[in-house]
Design a protein around this nucleic acid. Structure first.
Length: 946
RNA sequence: GCGGGUAUGGCGAAAUUGGCAGACGCGCCAGACUUAGGAUCUGGUCCUUCGGGAUGGGGGUUCGAGUCCCUCUACCCGCACCA
């Protein structure tokens, strides 16, 4: 029987659909296993061969677990809201909804071609009202809750109001924005608007004015991780800082728990480190300084309170509230000038410039509480408004940045730590003895930190404080294609949550979704914005991370109308056992979704502390790029391409490099990749601008039409990312059409370890193709099934069970490349002994089933089975076939292998030593003398030291 | 600058805890079958002065190091004035 991939795949797709092989219930008596992929943005470009890498790995694992008797939840959906989808829609002039639906259809077809075992009945789309109803519902809950730091739990906002009503806010320890203290009486005296403003400081979803990354070209605010090098990640437009009123999520309330609970999850160390650095916990002290001639106190945060006697100046962030109050008349002009300068500085300037110190003096002075010395107060760009208190005490002797500042503005430097006894210590190390520091003199730094904190608390001017680098998440986008906020404003501008029964608030249709500078597109819809009762709607929409922060819960029970997922389903599925995706979401998506999950856990809607038990990151699939050199200057009005072989080092800047579609290039990826006649023809057909160009090669100058024979235009090959602009994108559909889906799956796994970056090169795919053909040929001849029903020999069974064992352990440790190798080894060994026995090959098909689901399913049918192989039981290892009677031991002399010996497997160490010493080879080495030492490792090796 | 990672044939890589380095595959070479081969099959394929030498360089621990420690180099990723 001929192997025909297309027919097999078509048959299997139909069979799986008819039999509903991958359908899972919401609850079951079987043990559950949840295998999740990071769902994709359905971008217009479609999938390239890099995308399925993680999907294939997770699918193999899901299929394996399913065959082991688990109920496996393995869903897929689409992150269809957000900037990329909208940007794409704007570029193409198609409505985002239409574009999104088209893209999803394409993705779905591409995914189905690769044979994933998704339960498509559970597909979610973040842009579907039945989905975002619950995104809005969770946001509403966040708005209606605050975080109790004492109980470490989210609590309803009404409870906070009762506390305010009973005792004001002085006793309460809550996660909050800065808020002045008030008493119960004062609370009662406040107007509704004032009360609302105060509550905003406590809500987990709240509004505040903040400096944001404003991107004029996109007309919207971007998150820090959407900004790269001062440019927008999407489109590469400039980004500047601008104050705006925005919605925020108080993720900082959960900072400590997000940090602590990392110990309970299995992420890679680097992933955990990235997250904990992002959270950025530091222990320090909050200190209040008097300001000379003012009633206000200056509040600073420092991790080095011990250095207070070396604080020769203070620095405020330029945006600090006190700046306008304390600046003296004399200094006002220079401060104003500096503020103008700061405002003019875009992120681009700040990033691209070499660190240059800037600042200005306010004319005001703080008072050192311990020696009453006057400390000048400056403002400077290097102090950040949003970290700590936006103000520092600067200690030039013990901080590199303060030192640079002091030097630039000629501020005195007072040495306060003697590090002479620690020769290798740097300025950052907390080592040395205090000097010039009054009561701290002679103390070690770490002791001095303790001591100063005690003194500060005694004086009532400071306390120990823990700070986090992590900021609250900006949740507003001035965009169309996102979830509308379930928020309305009354005539006083007080924000109210919409009633639960009125959700979802459906995103209204808008013809022209282009942003209008400074205003969200939805603001154009007056009838939608202005409600009959005089209330108005929020016109911003939520960012991409909103839907993706909880989508994995919806998969558990995607059709539920009453809840984001039913209690029974959540109780059964609990959490994600294995989450597979790229590292690019290390700090964004992963932190947000952990935060949302913890919030829902606090409210009793979920039952596990963490959403993802185990995280696996697939490495980037790299491509090969090839480029050719075009002279910057034309010769006689003609473009001249020059062979890479004719360009000497250092000469490159006289040329522009242009990428060439790699399939035009001969030997692409090698050191001697080149364009031949055929390649040149294809190139000028694709880029007709160069029809008249000259191609300069070692064989002489040619026009495209003269180019022939031996002439080679050498190209420059490089390892690069896969990208449209590099003309090296390979569509998995094409690979599937040519080699079959199983071959693509096997090949992607065979390339190397999942977590490593690796280059794609279709040319080496035939290795696994050959394996599949050989595997197929083991079952069939031209007449059909050709297996024998003879009993298997022990030797054959040993090959089988050794393979099962290796593959089982390797799947468990996600080493899929070695699984494929082992399949090849098994087949090679069986072929070598001409085995074609059903007793061996039937279990082998099952082993291969997770990897090559199509071919194995088809063979299974041919073997006479009516139900899917993917519901069959994964073969178990029978150790009795693995028992060895003898082991080939390497015999080493002084650690160098000198020979081998077949020795009985059950021999004791003493026997082994004796047998080894009796060997001729060993006797020769010993030459009559006794060995110094003999090391015997059972089953491994024997080493004789002479 | 800080933090993390990687480095093994011409190429992708293997070597679970320190124990036979290069499994498996690509490519290449030779042969067989063939009208033909981008099909299939078989064999070979690190270097070597045949002692041995090789896992980016140098040093160390050990009977024994790709694996552990120190150090240097190169590349990749993340963060970027975090007080």
């Amino acid at each position: 029987m001929e192997l025909n991939y297309a027919e097999i795949e078509a048959w299997c797709k139909q069979f799986w659909a008819d039999q509903q092989v991958y359908k899972v219930p919401n609850t079951s008596v079987k043990p559950k296993y949840y295998v999740l992929d990071m769902f994709p943005y359905p971008s217009g470009a479609g999938l390239h061969v890099g995308h399925p890498l993680g999907y294939i790995a997770s699918d193999i694992f899901a299929r394996y677990k399913r065959m082991q008797g688990h109920e496996v939840l393995h869903p897929m959906g689409f992150d269809s809201f957000g900037l990329p989808a909208e940007q794409y829609a704007i570029q193409r002039g198609i409505h985002p909804e239409k574009a999104t639906n088209e893209n999803i259809a394409r993705y779905r077809a591409q995914l189905d071609n690769i044979g994933f075992s998704y339960d498509w009945d559970r597909q979610v789309m973040t842009s579907d009202p039945s989905f975002y109803k619950w995104t809005q519902w969770i946001f509403r809950k966040l708005f209606l809750h605050w975080y109790d730091n004492t109980k470490m739990i989210a609590r309803p906002i009404e409870e906070l109001e009762s506390i305010f009503s009973a005792e004001g806010n002085k006793k309460i320890d809550a996660a909050q924005s800065s808020c002045p203290a008030f008493s119960s009486d004062e609370w009662h005296a406040y107007s509704p608007k004032e009360k609302s403003d105060i509550l905003m400081n406590y809500r987990l979803a709240y509004r505040k004015e903040a400096y944001v990354n404003w991107c004029e070209a996109l007309g919207t605010v971007l998150a820090n991780d959407e900004v790269k090098d001062g440019l927008s990640e999407r489109g590469g437009y400039p980004v500047e800082r601008k104050p705006m009123t925005q919605w925020f999520l108080r993720i900082t309330a959960y900072a400590q728990r997000l940090l602590d609970d990392l110990k309970d999850v299995e992420y890679s160390d680097s992933m955990k480190i990235m997250q904990s650095n992002w959270i950025g916990r530091s222990t320090g002290a909050q200190v209040f300084f008097d300001i000379d001639g003012h009633n206000e106190k200056l509040e600073i945060y420092t991790t080095r309170a011990d250095t207070i006697f070396g604080a020769t100046f203070m620095v405020l962030a330029p945006e600090h509230d006190l700046v306008s109050t304390i600046t003296t008349k004399d200094q006002k002009p220079s401060i104003d000038q500096y503020l103008v300068y700061v405002k003019s500085r875009s992120e681009v300037d700040r990033m691209s410039e070499v660190k240059e110190v800037t600042g200005a003096f306010t004319g005001a002075y703080a008072i050192n509480p311990f020696n009453d010395e006057k400390i000048p107060i400056w403002i400077g760009e290097y102090v950040l408004k949003d970290y700590g208190t936006g103000a520092i005490m600067a200690v030039p002797a013990d901080d590199a940045r303060d030192m640079a500042f002091a030097k630039k503005f000629s501020i005195p430097i007072v040495e306060i730590i003697d590090k002479s006894m620690y020769p290798g210590a740097t300025i950052e190390d907390k080592l040395g003895k205090m000097i010039n520091s009054d009561f701290l003199n002679g103390m070690e730094v770490l002791d001095a930190i303790e001591e100063i904190c005690v003194r500060l608390e005694q004086k009532g001017i400071g306390t120990k404080k823990i700070n986090f680098k992590m900021r609250d998440a900006n949740c507003s986008r001035q965009r169309y294609w996102g979830e509308p906020f379930p928020i309305i404003y009354d005539q006083d501008g007080i924000a109210h949550a919409m009633e639960e029964k009125d959700l979802p608030l459906v995103l209204p249709y808008l013809d022209d979704v282009k942003p209008v500078s400074g205003k969200a597109p939805l603001a154009k819809l007056h009838d939608w914005v202005n409600l009959p009762n005089g209330y108005t709607r929020e016109t911003d929409t939520m960012p991409g991370f909103a839907g993706s922060s909880w989508y994995f819960l919806r998969y558990m029970d995607p059709h539920n109308q009453e809840a984001f997922a039913g209690k029974e389903a959540i109780q059964y599925w609990q959490d994600v056992d294995l989450y597979v995706g790229g590292t690019e979401h290390a700090v964004g998506h992963l932190l947000y979704s952990r935060f949302w999950h913890k919030f829902l856990f606090d409210l009793g809607y979920t039952f596990s502390k963490e959403p993802y038990k185990r995280l696996l990151n697939q490495g980037m699939m790299q491509g090969i790029s090839e480029s050719i050199y075009l002279k910057k200057e034309k010769e006689n009005g003609k473009n001249v391409f020059v062979s890479r072989s004719m360009i000497s080092k250092g000469d490159e800047d006289r040329f522009i490099t242009l990428y060439v579609p790699i399939q035009y290039v001969q030997d692409y990826g090698s050191m001697k990749s080149y364009l031949d006649t055929e390649g040149i023809k294809k190139y000028i057909t694709y880029f007709p601008d160069y029809t008249d160009a000259i191609f300069r090669t070692d064989q002489g100058d040619f026009t495209a039409s003269q180019f022939s024979g031996e002439a080679k235009l050498y190209t420059q090959g490089e390892l690069a990312k896969i990208s449209k602009s590099l003309y090296n994108v390979i569509n998995p559909d094409d690979v599937v059409a040519e080699y079959g889906a199983d071959c693509l799956r096997l090949f992607e796994m065979f390339l190397g370890p999942l977590e490593q970056a690796k280059p794609w090169d279709t040319r080496s795919i035939d290795g696994v193709g050959k394996f599949l053909r050989r595997f197929w040929a083991s079952f069939f001849n031209e007449n059909g099934l050709s297996l024998s029903n003879e009993q298997a020999t022990d030797e054959e069974l040993k090959i089988l069970h050794k393979g099962i064992k290796k593959i089982t352990t390797d799947i468990e440790r996600y080493s899929f490349n070695t699984c494929v190798s082992q399949c090849m080894i098994m087949l090679n060994e069986l072929k070598a002994m001409n085995c074609n026995k059903r007793a061996i090959f039937e279990p082998m098909v099952k082993v291969l089933a997770p990897f090559a689901p199509f071919m194995s399913e088809f063979i299974w049918k041919e073997l006479g089975y009516k139900t899917s192989i993917h519901k069959a039981e994964f073969p178990l290892v029978d150790e009795k076939y693995l028992i060895e009677t003898s082991i080939t031991y390497p015999i080493s002399i002084n650690g160098k292998k000198r020979g081998t010996a077949d020795l009985p497997a059950n021999a004791t160490n003493q026997d082994l030593e004796k047998m080894a010493l009796e060997m001729e080879m060993v006797k020769k080495w010993l030459d009559g003398s006794a060995p110094k030492k003999v090391i015997v490792v059972q089953g491994r090796m024997i080493n004789i030291v002479i």
